[in-house]
């Protein structure tokens, strides 16, 4: 599989990353080399092997349905770039 400049642009869009136009070929080259290395995995036979998402096969623990959090809006929004009337502001969302 070969990563083209076009792929880089579409992946960067999916990841919402503005990339320097001039750096795109560079990204493509790095990605290709890294993916080429990664594809060594294909040398291993993994037929029928169950994928492993966690280091240990444990089950999810459940939390009792209780309200434990109180309003901390003021301190959370102290970190926010722009707020008004308790709302986080972003450029107009067009539906």
């Amino acid at each position: 599989m070969s990563v083209t400049a076009e792929t880089i642009v579409s992946i960067a869009h999916l990841a919402r990353l503005a990339l320097d136009e001039k750096a795109i070929p560079h990204y493509a080259e790095d990605m290709n080399r890294i993916l080429h290395w990664v594809e060594q995995m294909n040398s291993a036979d993994t037929q029928g092997i169950e994928p492993m998402a966690h280091p240990r096969d444990l089950g999810q623990r459940l939390r009792p349905d209780e309200v434990t959090e109180s309003d901390q809006r003021e301190c959370f929004q102290a970190n926010a770039p722009q707020t008004e009337a308790g709302l986080y502001l972003v450029p107009q969302v067009i539906e």
Binding site: M41, T46, E50, P51, M52
Partner: peptide, 9 residues
Amino acid sequence: LKAQQMRRL
């Protein structure tokens, strides 16, 4: 998925 399988191996 392949990487997850490798992880198990």
